[in-house]
């Protein structure tokens, strides 16, 4: 096991009261909204386990909303996020529920977008402000948001990963972790975690690869 860094011990700098219930929740919200895209007018939060039981007392509701509005875990506006969402005309609904066999601090987001589409994202706050995104659009995924992450969705074909990784190598960036899954419709989701920040030019090139359906980029929150 690695030795913790000094800012893992003295940190995160965060809005209280609990790294799992506020800092982690805000990060979950921010990463989920990046996945969804920012043109949403309503968000439902399905809260599981400890999140379902104590979200009001811990301010988890405020932290989640702050996150989906793009705030960082140390943003002092976090405590007023419900009011800010209202001003922006974004409706937020909290639904305590049972999401099954999940980490006790789990939330499923449903974003309602202006183009009529819904985007579902699920993730857990796993302690110390760290998070794990576990599901996107019903597909199982697993990434932490600690690394710059590319989520590429494409029609499965030979050489696709080679095409993507070529553009990553072009920028002299190392791939830290990669997970690739394919669904029954032969659509593949590749989660690629990198050791350096993603730049726009590289994303554009990846987006233009033949058979690519969608590319989402998440820089660390």
């Amino acid at each position: 096991m690695k030795l913790y860094g000094v800012f893992d011990i003295l940190g995160p700098v965060m809005i209280g009261p609990s790294s799992s219930h506020t800092a982690g929740a805000a990060r979950l919200g921010k990463v989920a909204s990046k996945i969804a895209g920012d043109d949403f007018y309503k968000v439902e939060f399905y809260l599981h386990g400890s999140f379902a039981k104590t979200y009001k007392g811990h301010g988890t509701d405020r932290a989640l909303v702050a996150g989906v509005l793009g705030m960082d875990p140390d943003d002092e506006r976090l405590r007023n996020s419900l009011e800010i969402a209202k001003e922006k005309g974004i409706e937020v609904i909290f639904i305590p529920t049972d999401l099954g066999d999940q980490h006790p601090n789990t939330v499923k987001f449903v974003f309602y977008k202006k183009d009529g589409k819904n985007v579902e994202v699920m993730g857990s706050s796993i302690g110390g402000g760290n998070i794990l995104i576990t599901e996107i659009e019903g597909e199982k995924v697993e990434f932490t948001g600690e690394y710059p992450t590319i989520i590429a969705k494409y029609n499965d074909r030979k050489g696709m990963l080679a095409d993507i990784s070529k553009f990553i190598l072009e920028k002299d960036i190392n791939i830290a972790n990669m997970k690739v899954t394919r669904n029954l419709q032969m659509i593949t989701t590749a989660i690629i975690e990198l050791d350096a920040k993603v730049d726009d030019e590289m994303v554009e090139k990846i987006r233009n690869i033949k058979d690519m359906l969608n590319v989402i980029v998440i820089n660390p929150v």
Partner: peptide, 21 residues
């Protein structure tokens, strides 16, 4: 108190024990 009121603190090493250091 700042922590419990949703103010800004440093977890040191945790939010619950942030006042000591």
């Amino acid at each position: 108190e700042v922590n419990a009121s949703m103010g800004k603190i440093v977890a040191a090493p945790t939010a619950g024990s942030a006042g000591i250091l």
